[in-house]
Design a protein around this nucleic acid. Structure first.
Length: 449
DNA sequence: AATATCATAAACAATT
DNA sequence: CAATTGTTTATGATAT
């Protein structure tokens, strides 16, 4: 990594959203020996270039947020930082223990430098903030209406019709030079834009009243996959956001399915339970059910990492972590910083992987074997995998290395076909009132504060 | 330009 | 018989 001698902006090649990087002169430092990353949003044309330094409201010469502005870090050497508290890095999904502030700064600069991953995380955070603002605005309106209805005098002056773009003040405005035009939050999404959280940012989620919901588009920006960030780390801080906002999660179906499965208590789910996880976890998957359910089934069948296991009560799907990581590591070879993130994304550690190696076989082999087995054989042929309840877990299944496997009997709580009202209406209710979150208590929510 | 990955659609079979 | 589940093929868009 190199930094511009003049303005300390990280010089880099390769952009997050597309190829074009503009070798232009830095507007601030007029230094043209390095390449600044200019904004290339997925939905914008590749020729839209916004200088990261054009936002003059930025107090920092770099137009960067405090946590990305190196000069500001120096100023904060006193020991406080919005991203540092209780000895822990508070970067979304990080929580790295830092003994002192110096170590934190070091960690911040090394692990959360201005790179694609950090930028992506920033953008997600930006959406979270905006989403919360929208929601706050709605709640405020509701309160006003209630008070008006009850003939009460407003105790608090109605704060100015909320600035939708709160991002500008604290979080992002100045930053995200590489990715976000300053006016992003107000600009309508390009109709053809893929609905990634990034792209869909400006749009008011349908669950919150917006009606402008583009049809299901392809997942075009799978930054989490690409940059190998643990899914749980990325979603966790934005759990409420994805749950309520009709924004497509930037993950592939395979990634999501795996997450659903490893989030479950038994690390195995029936197809219907996977469906439920999708609808429960993402507002986006509460519509176009036929489409995405087909995609889920397609992915389950297609990818070797998903193993169908016959159980007494039917079939459940499990994840072969070795296979999953195989695929994944193939995609990210050549990027040490990415590879190093791999272990954190493994739900069960290396010991599990080692043990999984034994049982690995080809998908067709597995399926052939699985389909031939009867429930009876499962129970009697794999005694060493019986748990105390006598339930069988297939020896070749990754689940065999997990906590005891039970045959799931709980009925599907949701009839999730095409927009269940109960889910859609969760947008405006208090999260505390949710009672269907036993699965979310796992990876998805563990990072939530 | 070639290749890989992914989303989507759809046909079809097997199972429930 | 209908619905669900699972498999497979095809196609187009995008990324590398």
């Amino acid at each position: 990594m190199e930094y511009c001698q003049e303005c300390c902006l990280l010089t880099r090649r390769g952009s997050m959203w597309g190829k074009p990087l503009c070798k232009t002169q830095c507007e601030l430092c007029q230094h043209n020996t390095h390449t600044h990353t200019h904004t290339h949003t997925p939905m914008s044309s590749a020729t839209t270039h916004v200088s990261p330094h054009t936002d003059r409201t930025c107090q920092s010469p770099l137009n960067m947020p405090p946590f990305l502005c190196f000069s500001s870090l120096h100023e904060e050497s006193g020991g406080t930082h919005p991203l540092y508290g209780h000895g822990v890095c508070k970067w979304p999904g990080c929580e790295k223990l830092c003994e002192d502030f110096g170590q934190f700064l070091k960690h911040l600069n090394s692990e959360h430098a201005l790179d694609d991953r950090s930028t992506a995380q920033c953008r997600v955070q930006m959406q979270v903030v905006q989403q919360l603002e929208i929601q706050l605005s709605k709640e405020r309106e509701r309160l006003q209406a209630m008070m008006a209805h009850l003939h009460m005098r407003p105790s608090e002056p109605k704060s100015s019709p909320k600035p939708l773009n709160l991002v500008s003040s604290v979080t992002m405005s100045k930053n995200l030079p590489p990715a976000s035009p300053p006016n992003l939050p107000q600009t309508p999404t390009t109709p053809t834009a893929p609905i990634t959280p990034m792209a869909a940012m400006p749009q008011v989620p349908s669950v919150l009243g917006g009606a402008n919901v583009p049809s299901m588009g392809a997942m075009r920006r799978r930054h989490s996959d690409k940059y190998s960030m643990p899914l749980s780390s990325e979603i966790a801080p934005n759990y409420e956001f994805y749950k309520n906002a009709d924004v497509r999660p930037p993950f592939t179906y395979a990634t999501l399915i795996r997450q659903a499965i490893i989030d479950s208590a038994e690390h195995q789910l029936t197809l219907n339970e996977i469906y439920s996880w999708f609808t429960r976890t993402f507002a986006y998957f509460r519509r176009n059910a036929a489409t995405w359910k087909n995609a889920v089934r397609h992915n389950l069948s297609l990818h070797k990492c998903f193993v169908r296991v016959e159980n007494v009560k039917g079939a459940v799907w499990t994840v072969d972590e070795v296979e999953y990581q195989k695929r994944r590591s193939q995609k990210i070879t050549g990027s040490p910083s990415l590879v190093k993130n791999l272990p954190s994304s493994l739900g069960y550690g290396t010991a599990l992987n080692a043990s999984l190696q034994v049982g690995t076989r080809t998908h067709s082999d597995r399926l052939a074997g699985l389909n031939r087995r009867s429930a009876h054989e499962e129970l009697n042929g794999s005694l060493d995998h019986l748990d105390t309840n006598g339930h069988g877990s297939p020896g070749y299944s990754p689940s065999a290395h997990m906590p005891p496997i039970h045959v799931k009997e709980e009925p599907l709580n949701m009839d999730d076909d095409d927009c269940p009202m109960s889910l859609v209406t969760t947008a405006n209710h208090s999260p505390e009132l949710d009672d269907d979150r036993e699965l979310e208590e796992g990876n998805l929510s563990e990072d939530l504060e």
